[in-house]
């Protein structure tokens, strides 16, 4: 075991996969010589050379088009879109081309590619560099959607994404880059679509993703002080969605609270709530509660952004509402 930052885990994961498989290539803006604007890809250029670690112009369509064309002809590209907000300028490639091509071609074309992107708020960047857009991705048939909460999971899930035969949108939460965690030695590879129960509990199930996981854990500590025993599930991936792990926990606790960084409408928790309502309604002993960022663009100022994003206190309030 060694301690590693979420940021360094990104480079470690890419290096692990590039060493293993010469068909893995990596491209994006400022990713090679500069080591990434978040310094998450430092050292890769030196290690793997300019043919496999490539700086691009500011041209997100060109980046994803290059990744797609390379994936359909034998490479396994990892493309970086610096901020997930910028996915909006290349969404045609994501939603219309990458997601649909296998289906439209009756399975002729495989697109084993990963789009890594810095997602989410908490870093005071304002409304165009802070969005949580994982729910945009979740709505499109044909792409897998992954968002790790710990350095260890960055490696395990990014490795799984690179090895996956389908296109994967990999959301790294920007406010987590500096966080540290224990990472085991040797190769780490997870399976996509497996949620983790990060805290067992009998009274309520809190389901969270990425940066909302540590906040849910903090809320569970607060709840424990008042005698409420909360289970916390780190979803880790939205597609595939680990309904089994959620349902097993909800059946045991009778209460579900989702914690979502995305704005309210059509957030991923709405889908989870709908599934649980449809399939576990008779196991519920209280309302399903969604704790989300309100349906607003994210403001820049510290006080405003903190007020907008789900906090441990708001999660506690949500749990109390479900248990009331």
């Amino acid at each position: 075991m060694a301690e590693m930052t979420y940021r360094d885990a990104v480079a470690a994961a890419i290096a692990q996969e590039m060493e293993r498989d010469p068909s893995v290539v990596f491209l994006g803006e400022d990713v090679a010589a500069a080591g990434g604007v978040f310094k998450a890809t430092v050292g890769l250029l030196d290690k793997f050379g300019p043919e496999r670690v490539v700086d691009t112009p500011i041209a997100e369509q060109a980046i994803l088009g290059a990744a797609m064309g390379a994936a359909m002809t034998g490479l396994r590209p990892i493309a970086e879109i610096m901020f997930s907000d910028f996915l909006a300028v290349c969404w045609d490639l994501v939603a219309n081309e990458i997601a649909k091509t296998r289906y439209m071609t009756n399975g002729q074309v495989s697109l084993p590619l990963v789009i890594r992107t810095g997602n989410g708020g908490g870093v005071r960047f304002g409304a165009q560099h802070s969005q949580s857009v994982e729910n945009w991705a979740m709505m499109i048939p044909g792409i897998k959607v992954v968002a790790p909460s710990t350095p260890r999971d960055v490696i395990g899930l990014l490795a799984a994404a690179v090895r996956d035969p389908d296109p994967v949108l990999f959301f790294e939460q920007k406010s987590l880059y500096a966080t540290k965690g224990e990472v085991e030695e040797g190769e780490i590879v997870d399976e996509l679509g497996r949620a983790t129960v990060v805290r067992e509990g009998r009274d309520v199930t809190i389901v969270a993703l990425a940066a909302m996981v540590p906040r849910a854990q903090a809320a569970a500590e607060l709840l424990a002080a008042e005698g409420i025993d909360a289970a916390v599930i780190d979803l880790r991936s939205l597609v595939p969605l680990d309904v089994t792990t959620i349902a097993n926990s909800v059946v045991a606790t009778g209460h579900l609270v989702t914690v979502e960084e995305n704005p309210r409408l059509c957030g991923w928790g709405a889908e989870v709530a709908s599934i649980v309502a449809e399939e576990c309604i008779f196991d519920l002993d209280g309302p399903i509660v969604r704790v989300t960022t309100p349906h607003v663009p994210l403001p820049a100022a510290e006080a405003l952004e903190d007020a907008a994003m789900p906090s441990p206190e708001r999660i506690v309030a949500g749990v109390r509402h479900s248990l009331a």
Partner: peptide
């Protein structure tokens, strides 16, 4: 959809070069 496939053709050409 107009435009995207020019960028995708680049990807196939890049792949040929890398391979």
């Amino acid at each position: 959809i107009i435009g995207a496939h020019l960028t995708i053709a680049n990807g196939a050409a890049w792949s040929a070069k890398v391979r």
